[in-house]
């Protein structure tokens, strides 16, 4: 079924730092709503996410940006009483369709969380976990290769290559977060969702992750939720501004930050509230 989408990307991989208009749409959200029991967390959201670009979701706390992010790989399914409405098209297919296999969807759309959450296992086992459960590797040496490649892509290899059997929880915060990125990459997703990946990291570790995001963009579609407007400005090509469960404005990052159309966006980026 969905494996057809795992092949080579259909559109050109050319990345345009400015407009993004030439890029294919990876995700298209159509009237997405989220209710937690009685409370409506998201009001009909319409949003396109272009392929192989970084899209930043910004907005004040509780504005629904993380909730929206979690819709993209149906992580909200595991929350009791959470109901998602509307359509989210991934490569033209609605992922909210009950027939869609979330397991496969999440393999295609990986996620990195706010707090680094390495499994209480060795570094190697953390990275090999995904390939093992999905059965994407046949032999032990293939697995070694996958682990090495993933760690390299997450620019962690040089720091941990001599202690792959040490527990992942023993790494520093920044290293743990890169381990989580490596773990996500090892599954070969097409999209990586990042939920405030740097909020618990120091500035140096943050810089490393941002650098990494810039590199990953060449191969992956990245959606990042961030509190830091500077970060959004540094890493993303497109930015969506969320406010009170609605998308107020979406556009090229440069335009959003220099010439916002909506007064609320302007208020937020100039620090009048947040």
């Amino acid at each position: 079924m969905m494996t057809s989408h795992n092949n080579e990307p259909q559109a050109n991989p050319f990345v345009d730092g400015g407009s993004g208009s030439r890029s294919t749409t990876k995700f298209a959200a159509k009237d997405v709503t989220v209710h937690y029991g009685e409370n409506q967390a998201l009001f009909p959201i319409n949003l396109d996410i272009p392929e192989k670009q970084v899209t930043a979701l910004i907005g004040p706390s509780g504005c629904g940006k993380s909730t929206f992010l979690r819709c993209l790989n149906r992580m909200n399914d595991i929350i009791d009483g959470c109901v998602v409405g509307g359509q989210i098209l991934l490569d033209g297919r609605n992922i909210n369709d009950p027939k869609v296999d979330v397991v496969q969807l999440r393999a295609q759309v990986g996620m990195v969380f706010q707090k680094p959450n390495p499994f209480p296992k060795s570094i190697f086992d953390n990275v090999s976990y995904g390939p093992k459960i999905h059965g994407t590797v046949a032999t032990a040496s293939d697995l070694d290769d996958v682990v090495e490649n993933s760690l390299r892509r997450a620019s962690l290899w040089d720091e941990v290559k001599d202690r792959l059997q040490d527990p992942g929880t023993g790494l520093s915060g920044g290293q743990q977060q890169r381990l989580c990125i490596a773990r996500a990459i090892a599954v070969e997703p097409e999209v990586i969702l990042m939920d405030e990946p740097c909020s618990s990291l120091d500035p140096i570790a943050t810089a490393k992750i941002e650098e990494l995001i810039n590199e990953l963009m060449q191969n992956y579609t990245i959606v990042i939720v961030t509190h830091s407007m500077q970060q959004a400005a540094r890493v993303s090509q497109r930015t969506a501004f969320f406010h009170l469960g609605k998308v107020v404005e979406i556009g090229n990052t440069q335009q959003i930050f220099t010439n916002p159309k909506d007064h609320r966006t302007q208020g937020y980026i100039t620090g009048r509230y947040g």
């Binding site: 795992n6 397991v103 999905h134 059965g135 994407t136 590797v137 046949a138 490649n149 070969e188």
Partner: peptide
């Protein structure tokens, strides 16, 4: 980090069986 290393691609048929 710039040299891209190809990774094993999920074969769709085997993948479907495994998923089942």
């Amino acid at each position: 980090m710039t040299d891209l290393i190809t990774m094993p691609v999920r074969a769709s048929k085997a993948g479907a069986a495994r998923l089942k």
